[in-house]
Amino acid sequence: MTDSKPFKIAIASGKGGTGKTLVATNIFHTLTGKGIKTSLVDCDAEAPNAKLFFEGSLEHSFEVTQQVPAINEDLCTYCGKCHEYCHYNAIFILPPARVIKVIEDLCHGCGACTVACKFDAITEKPMPLGEVRRYTLAGNHSLVESRMKTGVYSPVAVIKAGIKEAGNGRMVIMDAPPGTSCPFIQTVDRADYVVLVTEPTPFGLSDLKQSVETLRGMNKSCGVIVNRAGMGNRELYDYLEQARIPLLMEIPFDRNIAHTYAHGGRLEELDPHWETRFLTLFEEIKKHYGNSHHQR
């Protein structure tokens, strides 16, 4: 298995709290344990938790910023062109009162206002959105964490920067943000295969369907891991069969697993069989990935 070409796996789920991070960290441990060079990227920039499960030293970190306009009022003629160009209502202007203000929280950094201004009155300055941290773990593996600043409107820029930092040429496991909106899309867009983690409940099924629908629209292949198997009902399994989605693994509902996870422990510490199970899972993913038509 060490001779396989590296690729990127995103671990995702529509619903939060289904066990994405549990799966991501355990696959990561299994791969690194086999000496496969792997990076784990925590793309859940609003609630990054993967680092809690590892000992590692901070190797490198950088701030992720976005350009926002700064208006030089000496040069501004209050013509209102920048306000007209801005589709995010981030420029407030009252020409008679000679008032112009940038509402930085609404700015998406598109640069349209700078293009609009014919008087060179707009310059751009960086505004912090968050941080990417790269940790070196034992055995030259790495953990990259995207961490959004509180109060920022979207984690997307920080997520993208984190995935870029993980680089190519090694296996990449991405712990994706929950949901099916932009942060999720931007993460899975860069993945070769998507593992959806869900639970066998009506909530889990409803969110899974939405994730599958989104991934199909993007032409991404995916498989499903059922966490907390044994609780809930069978409807989920019927859906998987009918939609022809591979069931990759089941993790039973078990207080011990919940407890182990709560403390940042790994499943193989609970029962050494888990290592074999996660290796089988990886082989399974490789098989499906190999069959998918959008290899990079």
């Binding site: 709290g17 609003e46 609630a47 959004m148 109060g151 409107y153 943000p177 929950p178 949901g179 942060p183």
Partner: peptide, 8 residues
């Protein structure tokens, strides 16, 4: 869930 724009 989270702490982003929809939460705010």
């Amino acid at each position: 869930p989270g702490i982003g724009c929809p939460v705010i």
